[in-house]
Lab assay of single mutants.
Amino acid sequence: QTVVIGDTTYHLNNPEAAQQIAKELAKKYGLKVVISGNTIKLK
Rank of each mutant, 00 (worst) to 15 (best):
K41R: 13
N14G: 09
K23P: 00
K23S: 11
K27L: 10
V4D: 02
V34M: 06
E24A: 14
Q19N: 09
I21H: 02
K27A: 11
K32Q: 12
L42G: 00
Q19H: 12
K27Q: 09
G37E: 04
L12Q: 03
V3D: 01
L12F: 15
S36Q: 11
T8G: 05
H11Y: 13
Y10P: 02
L12E: 04
N38P: 02
G30Q: 05
A22T: 03
Q19Y: 14
I35L: 07
I5M: 06
N38F: 04
I21M: 14
Q1V: 15
Q1W: 15
A18C: 12
G30T: 00
Q1M: 15
L42T: 01
K27N: 07
S36N: 11
Q1H: 15
T8Q: 10
E24G: 07
G30N: 06
D7E: 12
V4R: 09
E24P: 00
L42M: 05
H11M: 10
I35P: 01
T39L: 08
K23N: 13
T8I: 14
K41S: 12
V4Y: 05
G30F: 05
T2V: 12
G30H: 07
E16T: 09
K43L: 15
H11L: 08
A22Y: 04
A18V: 08
N14A: 06
Q19G: 05
T9N: 05
I21V: 08
T8S: 07
N13L: 13
T39G: 04
I40T: 01
L25W: 07
I40K: 00
A26E: 08
N38I: 07
G30M: 06
L31M: 08
K43C: 15
T8W: 15
G37D: 06
N38S: 09
I35R: 04
A18I: 12
Q1E: 05
K28V: 05
K32D: 09
N13M: 10
V34H: 07
E16N: 07
Q20T: 11
S36A: 08
V33F: 06
T9W: 11
H11W: 14
Y29N: 06
P15T: 10
V3M: 07
L12T: 07
T8K: 14
I5L: 07
L31R: 01
T2H: 09
I5H: 03
Q19I: 14
E16A: 10
G30P: 06
A17I: 13
G6Q: 05
N14H: 07
A18M: 09
Y29K: 04
A18Q: 02
A22F: 10
L31S: 02
A22V: 07
Y10H: 04
L12H: 05
V4L: 06
Q20C: 09
Y10F: 12
K28T: 02
I35G: 01
G30R: 06
K28P: 00
I5F: 08
N14P: 08
I35N: 03
L42Q: 01
T39V: 12
N13V: 07
K32I: 15
K32H: 11
G6C: 15
